[in-house]
């Protein structure tokens, strides 16, 4: 099997006195689709937020494509990463948020174009064409000139995915992307994720409560419970064959 694109090595995270993650070891391989499930407060979101550099681990290492994310070498010693180092490594990661976080002062086309142009210095014409293709792909090509405030929640989330895709990340993180949506809008967003999962070769990590969907598209399922990965394996392994009583109880809440 290929080298992992992301590795977590004994990663711990505390917020004040509260230990949220208590030793996470995890490999994510290129193009692998990973679903993270588990009860609220189990630390699912924290796992991906640390990879996006939105939270700093309390201890442990996260390796992205062979480079330590949160530490760097200086005069032969490993020290805390500075912003320059974080920027270099972070470029491989993209994220879609629960609350979309589109830029309200830009049209949806501008939302897609700003980072490739201003962060990566790409050619404007090329970026515009690619952004329009992405917007077409998520079914919003005709809305390119609208502002986010003119869109529904589901449409906003599809724009957010287009915006992240235009950056061509190697790893794309989805943080409960349907949790803030009205139930009738969830389907359209899941369809886009399914399309990305099927056709794109980047790795994906989905933190989600959409159990059936996650199990359907994931190569690997992690069950997170009380700050540790309590169970991991293929969807079939985790769902059908696990003897873990906490997992059985958790799943039963989605199956009635």
């Amino acid at each position: 099997m290929s080298e992992p694109i992301v590795q977590y090595k004994d990663v711990h995270k505390s917020f004040g006195d509260v230990k949220v993650l208590k030793g996470i070891d995890l490999d994510i391989h290129p193009a692998e689709k990973v679903a993270v499930i588990g009860p609220s407060g189990s630390g699912k979101t924290t796992i991906i937020r640390m990879l996006m550099t939105l939270e700093e681990p309390t201890s442990g290492d996260i390796i992205v494509d062979g480079t330590n994310l949160w530490k760097m070498e200086k005069n032969g010693a490993m020290v805390d990463a500075n912003e320059k180092h974080l920027r270099q490594v972070r470029g491989d990661i993209g994220m879609v948020f629960q609350h979309f976080n589109l830029f309200p002062h830009m049209t949806i086309l501008e939302n897609c174009m700003t980072a490739p142009i201003n962060v990566k210095g790409e050619d404007k014409k090329e970026v515009e064409q690619r952004s329009m293709e992405m917007l077409e792909r998520v079914g919003l090509g005709d809305k390119f000139d609208n502002y986010p405030s003119q869109l529904s929640g589901g449409q906003k989330q599809r724009v957010a995915m287009a915006r992240a895709l235009v950056m061509r990340p190697k790893v794309m993180l989805f943080d409960e992307v349907t949790s803030a949506l009205d139930p009738e809008l969830v389907g359209e967003v899941l369809e886009v994720i399914r399309d990305i999962a099927k056709n794109d070769d980047m790795a994906m990590v989905l933190v989600t409560h959409e159990m059936d969907f996650a199990l359907d598209i994931a190569d690997k399922v992690l069950f997170l419970d009380e700050g540790v990965i309590a169970e991991q394996g293929s969807a079939a392994d985790v769902i059908e064959h696990s003897e873990n009583p906490r997992l059985r109880e958790f799943l039963s809440r989605f199956r009635n």
């Binding site: 996006m52 993209g94 948020f97 976080n101 201003n118």
Partner: peptide
């Protein structure tokens, strides 16, 4: 400016200056 905007700017890897100037 909401926390989400700062996080989106980080997720898209904006530099400090561009984050302030554009977002």
């Amino acid at each position: 400016v909401g926390q989400g905007q700062w996080e989106a700017a980080k997720a898209l890897n904006f530099s400090l200056i561009d984050k302030w100037r554009r977002i």
